[in-house]
Nucleic acid binder design. Structure first.
Length: 846
RNA sequence: GCCGAGAUGGCGGAAUUGGUAGACGCGCUAGCCUCAGGAGCUAGUGGGCGCAAGCCCAUGGGGGUUCGAGUCCCCCUCUCGGCACCA
């Protein structure tokens, strides 16, 4: 073999290498199924508890089995798969399970349209999606598969309901609820987006119904406080939850209804303005209206108007540009601080959902109250004066909401309003006419759904209407199988007498079963706990298994669940913690929210006709190309715009990778180890390139989630190797072998099938998953010579090559020997030298 | 209105701590190979000036700090997301 220089061969590209080996074509359709079978046969992704190794619980939000996975799924699950395989290769005990959020309306709609039972439809979808996941090469431990529609799962969802009932956290109450007219069921507040149902987009109506609720508001403070502990969560998700919980500090103030003497409490964040109250506004839904006003002499006059306000749809009511409307009730209330008698109004801008449903109106210091007062010619009384320009209630054109000094405020006159807030709050408490309180925007979670394909709520009603819980031993309360799905007449469960008729376990008398099912968000609020012991029959999950695996080290999913699923899951985990079954009270240590997949600038959707089907993609290019593209085209947190040419590019890269191995493998067949001390500069450079790539890929995956740049680094490495041509010395062969082995392992998480295949062709018999992750050798990363950038007055004027670690004097001397640098320094004095060793030299001249 | 994220070539995007702006990929141009190519390979590819060496401009706009700013500070514009008649 010849010289020690590695030649870059331009005339003879590697594909034309004439070493005698016949090139083998890259054939994903042959390779991929073979490796999928092998992984399955080897039980390669089995999650085993092992105290010797660090554990890693990786979870992606499980899908609703709608029938086919779409590109959004592919992206989400490939992201997770990269991390799982990375951790597996590093030798962690990895739990990477998959399951099905299998209850929900599409199954029922399919039952109506196609006369197939929701269970059958669901199970068949699951089968298809599982096949698709397998084709993508996902590293799931299918032994732990679970589905929320399975009795072995939902029995424990029902158990959770019973426990929450015992704890006083599940309760039934009547009230105004959000009704989705398309899905024909009620919705929780979180599930109404801009006045529309989150699934259907239909404008939500208000109905007065008796429904089951979970008392999430009892956990508001903890849910809010513990957000501070979620350092591994994106700030915007934390912010959204903080917004949603909506804590505000203020005071309750008890006004009195003049006619009856009964107390009418209000919530305010501005107790300092209480002396400025000139009227009171009730929400149109306020109970006092039906109790007091409707039957009164004023009823006939005001009720039609109130009824009209009540029927305004939510999106009209919530539009802040909408006209403020109101009607005087004829009644008055008394201000407990100054004894003022002020008129009681009903106003459409007062919300029954917030505070107490009654607002003390201070037009001088609240913009909404101001507009209302001007419209209906109600008095404006200034009680806070700014320091500069005193306010005049007659000429004000808007409310003054900033700080100032109290006036017209009795004993509090002259105090800065900030002090008055505290002093008036103390005064309220001392006189038993109110107190400092904290109010939350968060409402209790309405969990009843008037649908069949959910978890039946395990309660029954006695003749007298009282609630009896189904005994734990009788769980699960299962769905009746022979049910007709007509799409008419509401919940099929309610029409099924065999289901509704039951016998009370306490009285032995006939009773009526609850026919509402639970919100499917309840099912998905604890599945991550169940994955730790999915077949456990002695309890909701095995406390020890959960203790080992929880919390989820990395959770991956869509941003759309920032408040919905992610808030509910935190709540239920805290409930499980309080029940003593979970050892953690926050489920997800780190959260990653990936961007959408778009095409032609919009979200991929059937209605837009811009859907790319994963099956077609795999058919044409193979799973590795599909995986690579969904990782490479954009950083994972940003939206990914689909681009067919980009897919081709990734496919070409895999072909190139394959050819590089084809060309170089024959030269590494019997490579021994190299001697790092006898390498030529070129050889050291090859070695350095290998180790730099190892380092880049490792940190990009682990620390930065930058899979796009990790893949770019491996592309650079392939580009570099592609330019090499033999013959090679022994040292060079050993170096090439090191490069190829590193390359195969670095690509393992991204393109697992081709990587396994190349790993095998390198002579290994074990899966690449057991190969260990390569380490970057710091010694190999060191350079003998570095390029130093030379600036003159901060502008780039030249580059010099110096031995690593050279001092400022040497660098300056070398720089001043550079022709172009001299052109800019000649005739000037060097006033200052900034030297960043091994990087940059800046000569400041003048 | 409040909160948060962002704006870099023809496009997707790099730039880890204030230190070579545009890695990698797409697209495009030229050439090679080929019966042919939609395959593969080689070279080039931010704008302007210049025969060239090289110089100037350039990270949404305007100021500032610094030897040096895509990166830090101030002001502005626009885009996206969340909350919003929340008392």
């Amino acid at each position: 073999m010849g010289g020690s220089k590695i030649t870059r061969n331009r005339e003879r590209p590697v594909t034309m290498d004439t070493s005698g080996e016949r090139p083998t074509p890259y054939s994903p359709t042959e390779i991929e199924p073979r490796w999928q079978d092998r992984w399955e046969a080897d039980n390669a992704f089995h999650a085993a508890e092992d105290p010797e190794r660090p554990k890693f619980y990786l979870l992606e939000m499980f899908p609703y089995p709608s029938g086919d996975i779409h590109m959004g799924h592919v992206r989400n699950y490939v992201l997770g798969d990269v991390l799982a395989r990375f951790k597996m290769t590093q030798g962690h005990a990895v739990l990477h399970p998959m399951g099905w959020d299998a209850l929900g309306l599409p199954a029922e709609n399919a039952a109506i349209e196609r006369r197939v039972h929701p269970a059958e439809w669901t199970v068949s979808n699951i089968g298809n999606m599982k096949r698709q996941f397998r084709r993508l090469g996902m590293s799931y431990d299918w032994d732990r598969e679970l589905s929320t529609h399975h009795p072995g799962y939902y029995a424990w969802t029902q158990w959770l309901f019973l426990k929450m009932h015992e704890m006083g956290l599940a309760y039934r109450k009547g009230g105004l609820v959000n009704w989705d007219p398309v899905d024909e069921t009620v919705l929780a507040n979180e599930q109404v987006i801009d006045g529309r149902g989150w699934r259907t987009g239909a404008p939500v109506e208000k109905r007065r119904l008796d429904q089951w609720y979970f008392r999430i508001t009892d956990y508001a403070e903890r849910l809010l406080d513990d957000l501070d502990r979620l350092e591994g969560w994106p700030e915007r998700v934390v912010q959204q939850q903080r917004n949603w919980i909506g804590r505000s500090e203020g005071a309750r103030i008890d006004f009195t209804v003049e006619a009856t003497g009964e107390t009418l409490p209000v919530f305010t964040t501005r107790p300092d303005t209480v002396y400025g109250v000139t009227f009171m506004s009730l929400a149109p839904e306020h109970p006092l209206i039906d109790e007091l006003i409707a039957p009164s002499e004023h009823g006939a006059r005001v009720m039609p108007e109130i009824q009209r306000m009540r029927t305004q749809t939510l999106d009209v009511r919530m539009d802040e540009n909408a006209d403020k409307e109101g009607v005087f009730t004829g009644f008055h209330v008394v201000n407990p601080l100054n004894g003022d008698r002020v008129p009681l109004w009903v106003a459409n801008y007062a919300l029954m959902d917030y505070g107490t449903g009654a607002v003390m109106a201070v037009p001088a210091h609240d913009q909404r109250d101001f507009e209302f007062a001007r419209k209906y010619d109600l008095p404006v009384r200034v009680v806070i004066q700014p320091a500069d320009a005193p306010l005049d209630s007659a000429t004000m054109t808007q409310a003054y909401v900033d700080d100032g000094v109290q006036v017209n405020s009795g004993p509090f006159d002259g105090q800065p309003n900030r002090d008055a807030i505290a002093n008036i709050t103390d005064h309220l408490a001392a006189n038993d006419i109110g107190e400092g309180t904290v109010n939350y925007r968060l409402r209790d979670w309405l969990v009843s759904r008037q649908r069949y394909w959910g978890v039946p709520i395990p309660v029954m009603y006695e003749d007298d209407g009282s609630v009896t819980l189904v005994p734990e031993d009788d769980l699960p309360v299962a769905h009746p199988r022979d049910v007709e799905f007509t799409g008419k007449g509401g919940n099929p469960l309610a029409r099924d007498e065999a289901f509704t008729n039951c016998v009370s376990p306490t009285t032995g008398q006939a009773a009526r079963r609850e026919t509402d099912t639970m919100d499917t968000f309840v099912d998905s609020s604890w599945y991550f706990l169940r994955f730790t012991s999915p077949r456990f029959t002695e309890g909701v999950f095995d406390r020890e298994a959960a203790g080992y695996w929880m919390p989820v080290d990395q959770y991956v999913g869509g941003i759309e669940h920032a408040v919905l699923h992610l808030l509910y899951a935190r709540f239920i985990t805290k409930v499980m913690y309080d029940l003593g079954v979970s050892s953690v009270d926050e489920p997800f240590q780190n959260l990653f929210t990936q961007g959408m997949v778009t095409k032609d600038g919009g979200k991929m959707s059937k209605s837009l006709g811009n859907v790319v089907a994963p099956d077609d993609l795999i058919e044409r290019y193979g799973a590795d190309t599909a995986r690579l593209f969904s990782l490479f085209a954009a950083p994972p947190e940003l939206d990914l715009e689909w681009n067919d040419a980009g897919v081709e590019g990734c496919h070409r890269f895999l072909h190139r990778l394959w050819r590089v191995f084809d060309a170089l493998l024959p030269h590494t067949a019997d490579a021994a180890d190299y001697d790092a001390n006898t390498l030529t500069p070129d050889e050291r450079e090859l070695r350095r390139m290998t180790h730099v790539t190892i380092q880049r890929v490792s940190t990009d995956i682990q620390r930065r989630f930058k899979f796009n740049t990790a893949i770019a680094a491996t592309m650079e490495m392939v580009n570099h190797l592609q330019g090499l041509a033999g013959p090679f010395t022994d040292n060079q062969q050993a170096l090439l072998r090191e490069s190829l082995e590193a390359l195969a392992r670095l690509l393992g998480p991204f393109a697992p099938h081709i990587s396994e295949e190349l790993w095998t062709r390198l002579g290994h018999t074990q899966s690449i998953l057991r190969s260990g992750w390569p380490d970057a050798d710091p010694d190999a990363l060191a350079q003998d010579e570095v390029t130093i950038v030379v600036q003159v007055n901060g502008k780039l004027r030249g580059r010099i090559s110096l031995a690593t670690g050279s001092g400022e004097e040497d660098a300056t001397a070398a720089a001043l020997a550079d022709e172009n640098v001299c052109r800019h320094t000649d005739g000037k004095t060097v006033r200052k030298v900034i030297y960043v060793p091994d990087k940059l030299l800046n000569l400041v001249v003048g």
